[in-house]
Amino acid sequence: MYDFQYHRPASLADAAKLLQSAGDDGKLMAGGQTLIPTLKQRLAQPSAVIDLGGIKDLAGIKVDGNAVMIGALTTHSTVASSKDVAGKIKALAQLAEGIGDRQVRHCGTIGGSIANNDPAADYPAAVLALNATITTNQRKIAADEFFKGLFETALKPGEIITSVSFPVPEKAAYVKFPNPASRYAIVGVFVARFGSGGTGGGVRVAVTGAGQGGVFRAHKIEEALSKNFSAKAIEGLHPPASSLNGDIHASAEYRSHLIGVMAKRAVAAAG
């Protein structure tokens, strides 16, 4: 690992200042479960690492009306074991419980996962399918505007995620086909159905692990499920292989097939 300047600010304002003064080579660190392995392989060489772990008010879970708000520094294990999350959006707690392994979940955070936008990460599927709102130190960003491609997001330089707010769906489920070694999603599908209340109703389906540009919504599946929320209704509607990613773990054709299977399982699991 190349050496770097290490900063551990105690407030969001200080973190933003440090990030600004570090210029292009500054890097924020949340739980470090992606950044540290990246640094160890010398795939990144930041001049400064700004550790957000000292900003205590960035962690925590609040039920806020018909939404669950999760602080950016909240670990996967905290989300997985939260009664508030399990009571309102069980699928989200289950998703968190399936990330990496127990040790990784003790450190890894929701904000870090979303900001990194790994195309095989689990949280982006939940954020997109649940139509979450990402709050930063500068603004609020809708899920549909946030994910911009492989490891790319709408975050500007100097922008720091502070929390993610998930509207509570009527029903939801996340099912993934994990890589058995890394437990990243080869394909993961998050299905959420909203009532006709404040969110406008309808069904949202997000797919992770498979897209050439990272997480995406499966619109044809959404339309079919909006009319008939059943596994039968989406037979054969999985996106074509030509739009998907193929690699040593799975071909694009196989991923296409898996999207159909995972989507049907998710619909069945959502009940």
Binding site: Q33, P37, K40, D51, D101, R102, Q103, V104, H106, C107
Partner: peptide
Amino acid sequence: CDTSQCGACVVHVDGKSVKACTMLAVQAN
């Protein structure tokens, strides 16, 4: 493994199991 996968380096930090190969010493201050 040194790649955050094998768990041979697990220690407890404030009571929680973590991979000591995937945490900076300064983070544990």
